[in-house]
């Protein structure tokens, strides 16, 4: 776990300094005084506890019956039960919400990547009129607050009868996903040496063939990371999901979970159980993929 690879297996160029950095001896454990060592580990343990605490607390609470979850008498474990889980899984539309979230996030991801891959490539490789404005556009659209788009998109969707449908959410999420994917993929494509393209061009490949046969296969890991990111964004989106969806068979998790804790008489016992159910699978996938995530993002960023 401790060995850090820079993401992007798609960054052969960057791999060199990384490798050398790892082999170099740094001031190590041997030279650290016990007091310093204690301080270091103490801080890290404290930080880890803070990171872990809320998760554990929610987990513990999810096994308590309702009257013990919200109660004046606090305890770690009280009358443990699986009833909250069975309620969430079998007596609510939770499984449907999960499915909806997966559908919305997956389509956002696929469509986003599909649209933006060639763009990322073109912006990375060719200097065509309109390239710089386009790049600026990607950057500016990253900062588009949903607050300005949500009303016009709502009225447009309403006109087409799309409110309360999953496509409405997918379309809304594409406003975030498309510029984001294009921006990130551009960063990745930048890190693939142009000499490969040139070699392929000498072999008589046209630009589309180069992209399809040479660059795309190399960029597969990068695309996977970008895709995963897009998926996560759509998965956790709250604002559009709260505004556009009304019936409980169409909710995504981000909105569905709010149903457990309404303004009056919140049912934290169900919320905590649902939270655990949402977090565990997402968390597992995330932990596997996370080491690749940031590096991709910053790779795109530094060269945006």
């Amino acid at each position: 776990m401790s060995q850090l690879t820079t993401p992007a297996a798609a960054t052969p160029a960057a791999a060199v300094p990384v490798a050398s950095a790892r082999t170099v001896k740094r001031p190590g454990r041997s030279r650290r005084s016990p007091a310093k060592s204690l301080l270091l580990h103490g801080t890290l343990i404290l930080a880890s506890l803070i990171a872990l605490g809320p998760i554990v607390w929610v987990l513990l609470s999810s096994f308590k019956p309702g009257y013990a979850v919200q109660s004046s008498d606090m305890s770690l474990v009280k009358d443990p039960t699986l009833a909250n889980y069975s309620y969430v899984l079998f007596d609510t539309n939770f499984p449907k919400w999960l499915l909806n979230s997966v559908i919305v996030a997956a389509f956002t991801m696929l469509i986003g990547i599909f649209f933006s891959a060639t763009t990322g490539y073109a912006v990375s490789r060719f200097n065509f009129p309109g390239r710089r404005p386009l790049m600026m556009t990607f950057l500016i659209t990253q900062m588009f607050p949903a607050a300005i788009l949500i009303v016009p998109i709502y009225t447009i969707m309403a006109r087409f009868g799309l409110i309360n449908t999953l496509p409405a959410l997918i379309i809304a999420y594409l406003t975030i996903a498309v510029p984001f994917c294009a921006w990130m993929l551009k960063g990745y494509f930048d890190s693939i040496p142009t000499s490969l393209d040139e070699a392929a061009a000498l072999d008589g490949c046209g630009p589309f063939a180069i992209f399809w046969r040479v660059v795309l296969p190399l960029a597969r890991p990068a695309i996977a990371v970008t895709a995963f990111y897009t998926f996560l964004t759509a998965w956790g989106e709250v604002m559009y999901a709260s505004a556009f969806i009304q019936t409980d068979n169409k909710f995504t998790l981000a909105y569905g979970l709010q149903q457990f804790v309404p303004q009056f008489n919140p049912q934290w016992e169900y919320l905590t159980a649902a939270a655990v159910l949402v977090t565990v699978p997402a968390g597992v996938v995330f932990m596997i993929a996370q080491r690749h995530l940031v590096s991709g993002l910053t790779a795109g960023g530094t060269k945006g």
């Binding site: 998760i55 956790g236 709250v238 997402a282 968390g283 932990m287």
Partner: peptide
Amino acid sequence: VLLVLPWAVPAFV
């Protein structure tokens, strides 16, 4: 691993 955990939790959770 422990310190990265909060990132694995969706923001709304």
